[in-house]
Computed example of a mutant assay.
Amino acid sequence: MENKIIIDSAVSLEHIGSIFQILSKVPQFVEKNAKVSAIEVLPGGLTNYNFKVTVDDVTYAVRVAGPGTHEYLDRPAEKHNAQIMSDIGINAPIIYYDEFYGHQVCKYIDDCITLHIPDFKNNAEYLKKAAKVFRKYHTCGKQFKAEFNIFRECDAYLKILKEKNSPMYEGSDLMLAKVNEIKAAFEKNPQELAPCHNDPLCENWLDDNKDLYLVDWEYSGMNQPMFDVAALVIEADLTAEQEKFFLKEYYGSDISEKQYGLLIINRFLCDALWTYWAILQIATGKSHDEYWPYGQNRHNRAMALVENGSLDKAIAELNK
Rank of each mutant, 00 (worst) to 15 (best):
I282F: 12
L201R: 07
Q224Y: 07
A272H: 04
A316W: 08
L214Q: 01
Y276M: 04
V233Y: 01
A230S: 14
E241Y: 15
T239G: 03
K210S: 07
C196F: 06
I265V: 10
A272F: 06
M222K: 03
K210P: 05
Y276G: 01
A230L: 06
Q224K: 00
L269E: 00
F246W: 06
F245L: 12
L193S: 08
D271C: 10
E187P: 05
K188E: 07
L263P: 05
N297G: 15
N297I: 11
R301L: 12
L273R: 08
V179P: 02
N180H: 12
G261Y: 07
A184H: 13
K210D: 01
D237F: 15
E257V: 13
N204A: 02
G285K: 10
D208E: 13
G295S: 05
V179H: 05
K286V: 14
S287V: 06
Q224A: 08
D254A: 09
K313N: 11
I315M: 06
I282S: 08
Q281A: 14
S253N: 14
D216N: 06
G285S: 10
E249G: 15
F186M: 01
A184T: 14
A240R: 09
A272S: 11
W274C: 01
Q281N: 13
R298I: 05
T275E: 00
P293C: 03
E241A: 13
R301V: 10
K244N: 10
P190K: 08
S256K: 08
Q259F: 10
